[in-house]
Every structure is written in structure tokens, then in C-alpha cells.
Amino acid sequence: MLFHARMDVRIPHDLDPEVRADTVAREKAYSQELQRAGKWPHLWRIVGEYSNISIFDVESTDELHDLISGLPLFPYMDIKVTPLATHPSDVRATDGV
């Protein structure tokens, strides 16, 4: 199952700098682990914002929830998830590519 997620990060300005650095480092390691496992096949930065657009490829909504809520930055994120379906005009889907 494919899901589109927009994640807006809002780290408090008064968060201890060491806690912030540690959390961001753990976030990077965790997200790269999910990317290598094929669960997070696309990740794009939104220019000028501390936000991203991501595509997740998971078996269920429960798996997606577990992956997203496991993000170290999760407590500081506003997240909007949209389930995706194949479009009938997608040439890759209709041509068997």
C-alpha cells in the first residue's frame, strides 16, 4: 500500500541544543534504515521549509502508523497522510511497465 505523507517539523526553539542534535541524528539514521528497507522509497524536501513530502510503501495502515510514530521527531511533527491508488491513465500501470 502506498501513502503520501507531508511532514512539517516544529522543534521548540527552547529545546536543549544537545537534545535537538541527538534527536535529529537519530531521525536521520531511522529514516535511512526505512529507506534501505524499501518502506520509504521517496523523500523530498520542501524548499524553504522544515518539511518533507514522502511516499511510504507498507503492508497496512497499522504498519505505517508504527513507522511514523517511531520517528524520533514525531513529537514535533504535524503530519498529513493520504492513501494512494493507481490512476487509470498511468502509462506504467496500463502498459505493464
Rank of each mutant, 00 (worst) to 15 (best):
M1S: 10
H65C: 11
A21L: 01
I79Q: 05
Y30K: 01
T61E: 15
T23C: 05
D8I: 03
S51N: 03
A29P: 02
D90A: 09
I46L: 12
A21I: 01
P83W: 06
D66L: 11
A25I: 01
P72Y: 10
P75Y: 07
W44Y: 15
D90T: 03
G70H: 10
P75I: 03
A21Y: 07
K28I: 04
V47Q: 15
V19W: 12
P72S: 09
E18K: 02
T86S: 15
D62E: 15
L43W: 14
A85F: 12
R26Q: 06
P75F: 09
V9S: 04
E63V: 06
E27W: 11
G48V: 05
E63D: 11
I46R: 02
W44L: 07
I53V: 14
S60M: 05
Y50I: 07
R92G: 13
Y50A: 09
Y30Q: 05
G38Y: 13
D14M: 09
E27D: 12
E63G: 06
R26H: 06
I53R: 04
N52H: 15
P88G: 06
P41Q: 11
Y76R: 03
I11H: 03
V47M: 13
F3G: 02
P12W: 12
K28S: 10
D14P: 00
D14A: 10
V9M: 09
M7A: 14
Q35C: 05
L15G: 03
E27K: 03
I53H: 12
P83V: 00
I79L: 06
V58S: 04
D95T: 13
W44E: 14
W40S: 00
P12A: 07
V24F: 09
I68T: 03
T61H: 15
P41M: 06
P17F: 05
T82I: 10
K80S: 12
S51K: 00
F56H: 01
A85G: 11
H65S: 14
R45D: 13
A25C: 08
V81S: 03
L2K: 02
Y76V: 01
E27M: 06
I53D: 11
H65V: 07
D57P: 02
H42P: 04
A5L: 07
D95Y: 15
H87A: 08
K28D: 14
S69Y: 13
E18R: 08
D22H: 14
K28H: 13
E33C: 07
H65N: 12
E33R: 04
D22N: 11
L67E: 01
R10L: 14
L71R: 00
Q32C: 08
L73W: 09
I53T: 12
S69M: 09
L67M: 04
Q32A: 05
T61C: 12
S51R: 00
R26E: 09
D16F: 07
S69A: 15
L67S: 00
L43P: 00
H4V: 05
A37C: 06
L64E: 03
R92I: 09
P17K: 00
T86C: 13
V81P: 00
L67D: 01
G48H: 11
M7S: 09
D78S: 10
A37T: 02
P41R: 02
Y76T: 01
S51Y: 09
M1H: 07
D16K: 00
M77T: 00
M77V: 04
D66I: 06
